[in-house]
């Protein structure tokens, strides 16, 4: 069953078609990767799907429902969450509090109860903190729980965003370069994490430059180049596709391309 469907979606910035007529369909519980050279439009595509940008044309269908142009907070209610390539962390809050914000939609939100610190609020805080702690442990950040996010290293912040997104218990999770700037050990941890998330039934849409990771983990791979679809298929199909190798040749050079796709 297709849980996320993008139909002929497109947006332009000052005449530049950042995403142009892109369509794909993601099966529930799979890992679907979107790859392409720098500036191909991957992040823009994520922004269109997650409601950060409103598409100029095309549609986004989430769990059979047309959600095109809905605000991100409305999409969150529909079961979509994401992380950001350029970190969007709550830097004045601790790691634990960052993840607790991810629980927002699951929390009881009575303003009067909050102002008066009624027992229900204390209970809610404890419950959110408990779940946030488990998620921090899951992404390997237990030691940072009480650390202000501003004092955490880059690789840890990447995983913090994943924990925050998971806190919302989404059905569809968009990850924008989760392994960027991470060392090989961290990258492997992230790979294991994504695998486990998918095994639990969550659908993962992944943008990632680490081709080895992408090829190992993806059920399907969608290739973008200059805002347009180049090809889509199983990982081994895409890797063998001469058009893909050529696209990477243009930006990365022969050796890197064969390395990256090899």
């Amino acid at each position: 069953m297709s849980i996320l469907k993008v139909e002929e979606i497109g947006i332009a910035f000052g005449g530049v078609k950042a995403v142009d007529n892109v369509s794909f369909s993601v099966e529930a519980g799979t890992v679907f990767s979107i790859i392409g050279p720098n500036g191909a439009g991957k992040t823009t595509l994520f922004n269109l799907i997650s409601g950060v940008y409103r598409p100029r044309r095309g549609r986004v269908i989430l769990q059979g429902q047309d959600v095109t142009g809905l605000e991100p907070n409305r999409l969150a209610r529909c079961g979509l969450s994401r992380t950001f390539q350029n970190l969007q962390v709550f830097f004045r809050m601790t790691a634990l509090e960052n993840v607790m914000v991810g629980r927002h939609l699951k929390e009881r939100r009575g303003l009067l109860a909050h102002l008066l610190a009624l027992p229900s609020t204390a209970r809610q805080n404890r419950e959110s903190a408990e779940i946030a702690r488990q998620l921090l442990e899951r992404v390997g950040l237990s030691d940072y729980a009480e650390t202000p996010a501003s004092a955490m290293p880059y690789g840890a912040l990447k995983r913090l965003e994943i924990a925050r997104a998971l806190a919302a218990e989404p059905q569809v999770l968009l990850l924008d370069e989760p392994a960027a700037g991470c060392n090989p050990v961290e990258t492997e941890e992230i790979e294991t994490l994504i695998r486990r998330i998918a095994d639990e039934g969550m659908t993962v849409v992944l943008v990632e430059h680490d081709m080895k990771l992408v090829m190992r983990i993806s059920d399907r791979v969608h290739v973008l180049e200059q805002g347009q679809t180049l090809t889509e298929g199983r990982a081994d199909e895409v890797r063998a596709n001469p058009k893909v190798i050529e696209a990477y040749l243009g930006t990365h050079g022969t050796r890197e391309a064969s390395l990256a796709l090899g």
Partner: peptide, 29 residues
């Protein structure tokens, strides 16, 4: 009342949107 509010889900939502509106919105705020 102020410290109660700050330490509540509402307070976290407010502090979150201070740091990143887009991330707060993605979290459902």
């Amino acid at each position: 009342l102020a410290v109660n509010l700050v330490a509540s889900p509402t307070g976290r939502a407010l502090r979150a949107l201070h740091d990143s509106e887009v991330a707060a919105r993605v979290a459902g705020v």
